[in-house]
Design a protein around this nucleic acid. Structure first.
Length: 289
DNA sequence: CGAATTTGACCGGCGC
DNA sequence: GCGCCGGTCAAATTCG
């Protein structure tokens, strides 16, 4: 943030031809006052961003630790039915989609008997994440823009939710095993719940595209949240599936969301654009005087 | 005309 | 064994 350059605008504005000298003096004073106010506000925002970025770095490390510990059961509320096809998909794939995620609970939670009967059950839990995205309630497309290419291969109306559930496969790479299910939340029709299964065995098709759509998501234990950046500003969707999150958890979640946003280049760009836009707007307003 | 989507049929796991 | 139900397939349809 370079305040000196901003201050120079007063000089430029002063150079503009004005009809009445008295008015120009008044205008100049008002401008200076406004600029100093905006500069102070800008400085405050900069400081806030700095603090938030620091918090992000710190909390990100904590989040990494947390997710590495709980990666096998992240926000997974397994239904009673799991299909063999899923198991084969997860287990038969040679692309190491489960390689690192299967360690942990599979050893501690399953006995030898279980492993003989249901040897692959734990694999199902691996790499299932849920993302909640707020959309227009009237939008029935069930499209969640996450930067990847998806091909729809089915749609079903499930029993527990009158909204249809759409099934997608990743079509960017033919061998990519990732699937996702998209369904509107039964509680809030404006929220679309996307459930991802598996892990992409290819790089993100276009990180720029992903940034442009700016859907960010993270899952913290039983609480998942997503952020969406748009021209109208960032929106945050929370999935408070946990009945009664403690104040500490709520606070932690809030901080992590804030830090996640500040780390996001798109968010920073949006902030910068908003700030610069404000300057332009204010300059335009003062020019009209 | 090829790719993507839709949609009814089918499959298979699970509970009774 | 049967029926329910979620998930998948694939032919038909739509779209660019």
């Amino acid at each position: 943030m370079e305040f000196s350059s901003l201050m120079n605008t007063s000089f430029d504005l002063n150079a503009k031809p004005l009809r009445i000298i008295d008015e120009s003096l008044l205008l100049r004073g008002a401008l200076m006052e406004e600029l100093s106010r905006v500069s102070a506000e800008n400085k405050k925002l900069t400081e806030m961003l700095t603090v938030m970025c620091e918090n992000y770095t710190q909390l990100r490390n904590q989040l990494m630790e947390h997710t590495s510990k709980n990666s096998t059961g992240v926000d997974n509320t397994p239904t009673s039915r799991k299909r063999k096809a899923e198991i084969n998909m997860n287990n038969g794939n040679n692309n190491n989609i489960n390689g690192t995620e299967n360690v942990g609970p599979s050893e501690s939670s399953s006995s030898d008997e279980d492993s003989s009967k249901k040897p692959k059950e734990e694999l199902i839990k691996a790499k299932i994440s849920r993302v909640h995205v707020r959309t227009e309630a009237s939008d029935t497309s069930l499209i969640v823009k996450d930067g990847y290419q998806w091909r729809k291969y089915g749609q079903k109306v499930t029993r527990d939710n009158p909204s249809p559930r759409a099934y997608f496969k990743c079509s960017f790479a033919p061998t990519c095993p990732v699937k996702k299910k998209v369904q509107r939340s039964i509680e809030d029709q404006s929220i679309v719940v996307a459930t991802y299964e598996g892990e992409h065995n290819h790089s993100h098709p276009s990180k720029l595209d992903a940034n442009s759509t700016s859907n960010r998501s993270m899952t913290l234990g039983n609480v998942s949240c997503s952020t969406t950046l748009s021209s109208s500003g960032p929106t945050i969707t929370l999935d408070l599936t946990k009945p009664n999150p403690s104040p500490q958890e709520t606070r932690s979640l809030r901080e992590q969301m804030a830090s996640q946003l500040t780390k996001d280049p798109s968010f920073k760009a949006a902030i910068a654009a908003a700030i610069s836009g404000k300057f332009v707007q204010q300059n335009n307003q003062t020019e009209k005087w």
